[in-house]
Amino acid sequence: MSLTTKQKEVIVYVLAAILMVIRVDWWWWGHKIYPLVFGWLSIPMIYQILVWLAGWLLVAYVVYKVWPRENETE
């Protein structure tokens, strides 16, 4: 089953909304944390990097799979 552009857009925006909520990692917020990876990056830092990465993947999905082909013509 192939999704329509509208359906894909809805999925992207729902995932974007979820990402905007879970980017606030309240379960770690304000807790003492220590750099673990390379003596530099901590778990919350890596979590935030993953959120950014997920957001970037959404952008890539839009670019390659959602952006309507008809707009490609001038």
């Binding site: 974007a16 980017r23 830092m45 935030q48 957001g55 952008v59 670019v63 959602v66 952006w67």
Partner: peptide, 29 residues
């Protein structure tokens, strides 16, 4: 502290480009 980069990048860094699509691909033509 470090949270300043996440403050911007984990929201604006990808959501604004997504909205550039939302606004731009409709408005451009």
């Amino acid at each position: 502290g470090w949270i300043v980069w996440a403050y911007f990048v984990t929201s604006w860094g990808w959501l604004s480009p997504l909205l550039f699509y939302t606004v731009g691909h409709k408005a451009w033509p």
